[in-house]
Amino acid sequence: MLLEVRGLRAYYRTLTGYVKAVNGVDLQLGEEILGIVGESGSGKSTLASSIILPKPPLRIVEGEVLFRGERIVAPSDTSGLTRVRYRHISIIPQYAMDSLSPTRKVYKIIKDLARGLGDDVLAKARRRLRRVNLPERVLDMYPVELSGGMKQRTVIVISTLLDPEVLIADEVTSALDVTTQRAVLEMLRDFKDSGIVRSIMIITHDIASVYQVSDTLAIMYAGRIVEHGPAEKVIRDPLHPYAQALISSIPKIGIHYKMQKLKGIPGNPPSLRNPPSGCAFHPRCSRSLDECSSREPRMVSKDGRRVACLLYE
């Protein structure tokens, strides 16, 4: 197991109390591409930051994160992270492509990030750029001169220059057009298949796009994982009522409302300040039982995947 998350709870401290953004997550990451899918208020981005970049006002309240069996994150102790960050676990944060310094050329940005690693970093960067079909002159350009897709590809090249074992990509395709989105996702797949990185965690709200390149999928709701398993199984035959409702609400080309009327999920996204009691999805769930409002479902194995729903306990 490369990365293991055990009983993780990570809260934001605010004026009016805690925002329980990650509220009990167990997850194991092997050599695979794992897609973490969630809508607003699911805590998916917070999960990414709490694994690798927990900083105030985000606080690790409970649980731990292990990398190759070694603890790297625990409540009030994230000292283990500095050892593994970038070298072993690299993250592309949301909006990373807008945060490239506009006044520095790309090669300077690379030099700053990989200080003390000598000139072969640039040679490597050149090789990687060629690999993703970008011209070497990208190195001599300012980030603003690059188009969205080129910029995002450059960001991925930069963040994997040290050949990390784990890459966490947070909403890397959400600002891109569909044609460039596909190119970026296929590039991630290629990085995994060719062994540049050993495993990738893609965090996104777009289930259809991440499905295309993932081996496994985890669906989050209100700070918890509700279903986790092989991508094909989760999409074709979801078990959790939220996963079922989410997947069946997404139109496909060829479905017109006059032929087949789709239904969304009623109600509003959950509040992370005061998440509903019991199963957080129960107020919007069409299959909820009486005890759903009082008892928190445990994660159980069922049909080759893990699911957290009282229907299967």
């Binding site: 605010t14 004026l15 009016t16 925002v19 607003s40 208020g41 509003n268 996204p269 509040s271 992370l272 300040r273």
Partner: peptide
Amino acid sequence: MEQHTVSRTKEFLHH
């Protein structure tokens, strides 16, 4: 979207 329970005025005064 996360629902805000603090009004903006309150937040402003707090800061």
